[in-house]
């Protein structure tokens, strides 16, 4: 009974929405919205083909590499800036400015400087994803507990040991929050850079379908982006649960007390 209810909760509303969608498009009057069955078959036809290798995989590859670069750069620089007061003073106004630049606007410049290739897209995504991770890492390092820092000093945690056993884990809740933000920004930048200047990728495909007024195909691309978004967020949550297990336990414990 409970299981039934839960299934109802999960699939009830989506089912109703799809039913409404079906009912309103059954006559085929709306030019912009395809019928659900047409949409499903188009989706399979478009993406379950070699397009998966020529467009989907390159997009995913760009996104993953960019996120990885942003993560490494962001955490390393963030720790350095967070630990050194002078470095922070030196870079704070500059960083404040650079991160305020809405990253999509850089696409035309990078296009000129680098050309239409993967490096340009990776550069765009990194320039957008780096800041949330970097700034959150700085914040995380700075908000380390004073008593804990003293404890680490008393027990002689220095240099790399200090970073590995104190700074990184202590900053990890905020670093993870930064990564979550970066994922969303990264997907936006991937799609926009592919739409603006590319010869392959999901963003390129969608804009190409629009130019050919292939409406169901265009929709199938939007749905694909949604699926990738969902998968990213599920994967992220699984990782976060592992990495921050202690943090949730700690919060729960201090809420009870």
């Amino acid at each position: 009974m409970i299981v039934l209810k839960r299934i109802g909760m999960w699939f009830g509303l989506p089912a109703i929405l799809i039913a409404i969608w079906w009912a309103t498009t059954a006559q085929g009057v709306n030019f912009f919205v395809p019928k659900p069955d047409k949409m499903a078959s188009t989706f399979a036809k478009v993406w379950y083909s070699e397009k998966f290798f020529t467009d989907v995989l390159p997009s995913i590859g760009r996104l993953s590499i960019s996120l990885l670069i942003s993560l490494v750069l962001g955490v390393v620089l963030g720790i350095a800036i967070g630990l050194s007061r002078n470095l922070r003073w030196l870079l704070e106004p500059l960083l404040e400015f650079v991160r305020a630049v809405p990253s999509t606007i850089l696409i035309p410049v990078l296009l000129l400087l680098i050309g239409i290739n993967d490096t340009m897209k990776v550069a765009v995504i990194v320039l957008g994803c780096l800041w949330p991770i970097l700034l959150n890492t700085v914040e995380g390092v700075r908000s380390l507990d004073e008593v804990l820092k003293n404890t680490a000093r008393v027990y002689g945690l220095r240099g790399f040991d200090r970073i590995r056993y104190l700074v990184l884990p202590g900053a990890s809740p905020l670093i993870m929050a930064g990564i979550r933000h970066s994922l969303a920004v990264g997907l936006i930048l991937l799609v926009v850079s592919e739409m603006f200047a590319s010869t392959d990728g999901i963003g390129y495909s969608i804009i190409n379908f629009q130019n050919r007024v292939a409406i169901p195909e265009m929709w199938s691309g939007i749905v694909l982006l949604g699926i990738i978004g969902v998968l990213l967020s599920v994967a992220f949550q699984a990782i976060q649960k592992r990495v921050l297990g202690w943090y949730y336990g700690l919060k729960e414990a201090s809420n009870d007390g």
């Binding site: 008593v147 804990l148 003293n150 404890t151 056993y165 202590g170 990890s172 202690w246 943090y247």
Partner: peptide
């Protein structure tokens, strides 16, 4: 502050 001097992770 015992709760803050132990590494929670």
């Amino acid at each position: 502050e015992y709760s803050r001097s132990l590494f929670p992770w």
